[in-house]
Design a binder for these strands. Structure first.
Length: 424
DNA sequence: TCTGGGGTCCTAGGACCC
DNA sequence: TCTGGGGTCCTAGGACCC
């Protein structure tokens, strides 16, 4: 059996940890640049605040009901997430961290008649140790565990945020009462396709054949999905330290910028962040890509994948040294930038990732490589211990008029001495 | 006036090889 | 009028997740 543990309204719960006055008060948290609503408490949901909706549209509703609003505080959420995951690691031998607020746990060591109790123990321990409330879904497959979790969250009072699907009757009942669009792995496109074919519930989908799934649901992914719904494990728990195959850092600017130096600084900053992620997983990159998006692009038509201009450089030797990545990144900006154009977004992508220790030694460059590497280690250590970039490269600049808007940011209560929560 | 920022996996099709 | 049967690698793009 597998469990999925999912933090309830995670970002909102983190903010509430240090604002006990907001315990039963509606709360929402905004995305970067204060653009969309990415987390909402149950109270805010009850007032009709939409998930992932634009903030400016929800603002009248928010003001009307005096809903508390926060910009996203990733220093805080990252640290709290780490505490939750460390807690879970004491409760199961295999923990797959699936996202900042979710983890799959292996429960094969628990006897069937103790699953309910085990799930309750998980929920209570996390809440007691971290202050974060979670929902727990337990079932034979990952997809069914997600389904169980969906029901646990939907009926919090009846379920106590816990749902175990063990018997075939329990599974069938849950499948029957789940609409197709709420199944993990069925997005908007497939949902409308399935509805057109008269498939409306998860139960109906689970009764389809594998041949059908292959033909209509994207090949092998469809087969896996249907098998998982039938209770046949087809998506395994991943090993804990999976290295990424691509690393990206991209951001909207706080306001459009039309001078090349600002774009250079922004891209240098994003490159610095991407290089940190690269070193954290002990990789080196062989390809660096940069893209910039002009202000005039109509984001309402295709917000995420709209036209942008991009270019990439293949590096002579794969590297994880920040300076060696900033240089080509900035010259890519010089290539792409057009005078007189205002830009609203830029991004850096690192790909062609290889393990760092597989790098070929070079007799002639070894000396500088090593000292660069040591410098990187020192920078990473200082910045990580502060959970913030205290040490920076000159190329990232100091003007920062491209910096994102974050007007409602809470304090970094757990990672900065100067911002510790005070009890008087 | 104002709508995020990451990732993954898979497939199709073209280029090329024997 | 006729035109094999495999492979591999790469890229673009679709679909999904949080």
């Amino acid at each position: 059996m597998k469990a999925i543990v999912d933090c309830n309204s995670f970002y909102c719960s983190c903010e509430r940890l240090f604002r006990p006055d907001l315990r039963n008060h509606p709360v929402v948290v905004l995305s970067n640049n204060d653009g969309c609503i990415v987390s909402r408490s149950d109270e805010a949901k009850a007032f009709g605040v939409q998930m992932a909706g634009p903030y400016f549209l929800a603002r009248p509703l928010i003001q009307k009901h005096n809903i508390a609003v926060f910009s996203s505080n990733y220093n805080l959420y990252g640290d709290i997430s780490w505490r939750v995951m460390e807690t879970l690691r004491t409760l199961s031998p295999i923990v797959e961290v699936y996202s900042v607020d979710e983890a799959f746990l292996d429960l094969t060591h628990i006897p069937a008649n103790e699953l309910e109790q085990a799930a309750l123990h998980i929920r209570e321990t996390v809440e007691q140790w971290t202050g974060i409330s979670v929902s727990v879904g337990v079932a034979p497959t990952k997809t069914l565990a997600k389904l169980a979790n969906y029901h646990a969250k939907k009926h919090k009072v009846q379920t106590n945020c816990i749902k175990v699907l063990a018997s075939s009757q329990q599974i069938e009942e849950a499948l029957r009462t789940t609409r197709i669009g709420n199944v993990w792995g069925v997005g908007r496109a497939f949902a409308s396709k399935l509805l057109n074919q008269g498939i409306t519930s998860a139960l109906e989908l689970s009764n389809m054949t594998e041949e059908w799934a292959h033909r209509h649901m994207g090949g092998v992914t469809g087969i896996r999905l249907v098998r998982e719904l039938k209770g046949i494990p087809s998506i395994q728990l991943e090993e804990p330290l999976k290295t990424k195959k691509m690393i990206a850092t991209t951001r909207m600017f706080g306001e459009p910028v039309s001078d090349i130096n600002s774009v250079r600084e922004a891209v240098a900053t994003y490159t610095t962040r991407a290089a940190e992620k690269l070193r954290r997983q002990h990789s080196a990159a062989s390809i660096i890509s940069v893209f910039i998006v002009s202000k005039d692009q109509d984001h309402l038509i295709d917000f995420h994948h709209g036209p942008s201009i991009s270019s990439h450089t293949t590096l002579p030797v794969p590297t994880a040294i920040t300076q060696e990545l900033i240089k080509p990144a900035v010259s890519l900006v010089d290539q792409l930038f057009k005078r007189g154009t205002a830009y609203k977004k830029a991004g850096v992508m690192l790909s062609g990732l290889v393990p760092q220790d597989s790098l070929q030694g070079n007799l002639f460059t070894a000396q500088t490589k090593n000292s660069n590497r040591q410098l990187m280690d020192i920078v990473d250590n200082v910045n990580f211990s502060m959970r913030d970039d205290v040490l920076k490269f000159g190329a990232v600049g100091t003007t920062r008029n491209w910096k994102m808007r974050q007007e409602l940011h809470s304090a970094r209560f757990t990672t900065r001495w100067g911002e510790l929560y005070e009890v008087s």
